[in-house]
Write a protein that binds this DNA or RNA. Sequence first.
DNA 1: TAGTTCAATACAAACGGTTTCATTTCAAGC
DNA 2: GCTTGAAATGAAACCGTTTGTATTGAACTA
Lengths: 335, 335
Amino acid sequence: MAQIRDVSKRAGVSPATVSRAFSDPSKLSKDTLKRVLKAAEELNYKPNSLAQVFRVKRTNTVLVLVPDIANVLFARVLSGIERIAAENNYLLLVSDTKDDIALERAGLEMVETLRADGIIQLGERPLGDLHTHPEPSKVPFVHAFDTPDAVPYPTVRINNVAAADAMASYLLALGHRRIGVLAGLKDRIVTRERLRGFRQALDSFGVPFEESLVEYGPYSMAGGAQSALRLLSRNRDLTALFTMSDEIAIGAVRTAMDLGLDLPANLSITGFDNIEFGKFCTPPLTTVMQPAERIGEVAMTLMCNLLAGETTGDAQQTLATELVIRSSAKRLAQA
Amino acid sequence: MAQIRDVSKRAGVSPATVSRAFSDPSKLSKDTLKRVLKAAEELNYKPNSLAQVFRVKRTNTVLVLVPDIANVLFARVLSGIERIAAENNYLLLVSDTKDDIALERAGLEMVETLRADGIIQLGERPLGDLHTHPEPSKVPFVHAFDTPDAVPYPTVRINNVAAADAMASYLLALGHRRIGVLAGLKDRIVTRERLRGFRQALDSFGVPFEESLVEYGPYSMAGGAQSALRLLSRNRDLTALFTMSDEIAIGAVRTAMDLGLDLPANLSITGFDNIEFGKFCTPPLTTVMQPAERIGEVAMTLMCNLLAGETTGDAQQTLATELVIRSSAKRLAQA
DNA sequence: TAGTTCAATACAAACGGTTTCATTTCAAGC
DNA sequence: GCTTGAAATGAAACCGTTTGTATTGAACTA
């Protein structure tokens, strides 16, 4: 591979000039610039980015910490991040942390040891806090998607409480009163927030909340199927299921159908997230749309600003959600 | 950040000794080693990996080119790659190429400019060939998942022809004779291969192939829904639909149901890939399992070998698929 | 005892760019 | 024609490691 010295010799200039030809062409005379570019072209010269990066101490790379790459939602967020990253000439290092705090720390270290300029973390971190440990850590950091609440760094999230409230209110407005809750993992912040929204809706409709009507479980189809089975066999009088994710909802639909229920006639079910599949399953899922790609885009944009040294303050972005009404939830038949 | 010089001074040795303390401790006397480690510990010294990488010319990073990160299958392959990468201490640069050849070239360049040690490419490349251009390119390269056929670099793939044959044979064995094909994009290699398998099955059952029974379209639920609509309204006598992906199948199911068909009584539908949803949708999807995570694992393992300088030959790995029989395809009722 | 060998360590040269600072060039102004 | 200042360019330091080679001294051999 040709190096800067070769080019400089061929163009009859110093290496410094060649360097400038790429980094700030305006500094060169028209003539020299042309000569240098020609020489570079002829030698097929590409600056060794390792050397560059080493000298400049900026990798133009950001590390993304994902709890589970294979998860549809995270994948979509990632896709949004990637779009903005590409636009701004950033590379993406992706690490699947499997919710493992050790791996997250390793990530932090990667930045300190200069492999990346900043970190975007997805998903709430169940254990500890990356940032309280040594000191508020000067590593550029953005937290997106299911972020914890009041944190000292930029976040981008949705208002889970309001969204859940809206969804539950819709169910209540349809006349449902006996509503089961298929919640996610009990220790998750999102779970607590969405439950809060649900109760809030109940309150405003003057319907009492019953702890026995909520069933916790993993955010997955299998989890939803199991939770639904437990909840449904315990409570025969439920007319609707408020679930905390589309996957849970789809699992619940499966269970309900296997139980011989006619959906949505016998049981209304709502989801959360609006994954693509919800539109095509049977019955098409009424749910709340969460702008996953957009969350990624905003997160990466925030990171770009951060790295550009713009003081974004503690930009806590909250993105809008939207009820998407399909046909898995129907007005309660007058008994 | 403390650097090697600081540590060496504090331990009263030369920088070289500190370096060796980390890279090859056996070279040091027990005593010095202890002293150096202590000093490093006290100064919280972490080698600047940028400098390291620059010196050694090995980034321990591999670039993964993905046509679409948000796609469930690619995400799963990625997950497999990630697992093995983590085990072997590799970092992953991920780039969503959007099937754009320019971006793929950019990727190649990244390796040439040394940001990554090798490339794993996912999905078939619809245009041109990365590798014929300048010369067979000495960049470590592995192609996984929907790879083209006879290529001069390691690949890991499934046998689409055989898998499609098996799936179609199953349908034929159930008594179906009028089978529509919901194919993927016409210019895709996978599409051609799966169609070949389908025809092969037809042949062995002595059933003639009718071009008019195949409908091409995108590999998506929306695509499947549309193709199904076209195909079904054109051919009223179809008893089964052989589709080329689970997403297509799910779209087709939606259409069929909207058309008032009773599934699978009126129409059998099979998928391909075995995405998780297939198990939970209605009716649960009969499909062929494609080991996505495993493909990723094998690909990354191949890459590790390649980078370790082991001559893997032109390791063309073909992984086993498996029919997964659920209930979207049933024996044809005797008319 | 002198010579040889070997382990342990130090020295200094890379690695391939970027950037500071000094110098040269050259047109404009007087 | 001389001065002046800006624009263009070059020389050399620098970034923080790794690594080939040289050095040292102790143990071992003949």
